[in-house]
Design a protein around this nucleic acid. Structure first.
Lengths: 142, 142
DNA sequence: CCCATAATGTCAACTTACTTGACCTATCGA
DNA sequence: TCGATAGGTCAAGTAAGTTGACATTATGGG
């Protein structure tokens, strides 16, 4: 009996994660759509914003995609002047990627939607719940 | 200053959710790949398993995809005898979908991977953290 | 100085997973 | 009987990924 109850709880947890993630991505998705961009562009903007001067290899690492999959959207972002690339000071083969002012604006807009969503949930629940949330997701992400 | 700190925490939270979700899906994805199935098949199997006798419309509702997107993978699952469809007893237009014994086996295998992942995280963190995790994700899922 | 190697870019061909639009059948219910 | 609903299907297109092969440029060791 106890075991059945736990299974039901774990099923609930699976659905919670599924629906929460869907809710979490579709705000930004709608903004991106208006510019003809996709979720990949958002991920690129996000990680360049967070880790300034990241290299192409570095991006490939965090995103866990092939360089061919990265290349097209990254090129578009550079062409749209949302991202700037400079050769590395030590190793000129390595590109240093960073957001332009307009890239930062877009990134902030997208990420802002997600931050507000999380912040509302955190504020409604309180600091203890937030800490628990972080510990558990950290363990799942690990 | 306080505001900057909060921003940093919210950025961390975003990444936590991103990486956790990725970790959460790639166990099942690898199992599915060996059978030539994708994440869509998993979602179908999952929701039929959870809501026995769900209709095609019902599935379309929870999955939030077009019927054309659902049709092909659902048909494959029926052809592979992982899912069975019977006409509804009241309304014969409505299909009642359920898992076959083999469908249940596969669904349990896939979902089991995710349940174990979550259970380890819950057990490591304790009941209070788990409750906080649920409240916050519930709020994000809306 | 030469050459293997690394970082990046790009072409091609393919797959998966969606989308919208149009149209079909079967069944239900007023 | 007839309109509405549940479902199925064809077509054409898009987005986002894959692997494989190959080119360019720059580095750094011998």
């Amino acid at each position: 009996m106890v075991d059945l109850k736990r299974r039901a709880e774990l099923h609930e947890a699976i659905e919670l994660l599924y629906f929460a993630y869907r809710g979490f991505t579709d705000g930004p998705d709608r903004i991106l759509e208006r510019r003809g961009l996709g979720r990949t562009h958002h991920r690129i903007l996000y990680f360049i914003g967070r880790r300034r001067d990241i290299s192409v290899q570095g991006l490939l690492g965090v995103l866990a995609v092939s360089k061919q999959a990265l290349n097209a959207p990254l090129r578009q972002l550079i062409e749209m002047k949302l991202v700037a690339a400079a050769p590395g000071p030590q190793d000129r083969r390595v590109k240093q990627l960073r957001l332009t002012a307009e890239g930062q604006r877009l990134e902030s807009e997208l990420t802002g939607v997600q931050m507000r969503l999380l912040e509302r949930a955190f504020d409604a629940a309180g600091a203890a719940d937030e800490a628990g949330w972080r510990r558990i997701l950290g363990s799942v992400a690990g």
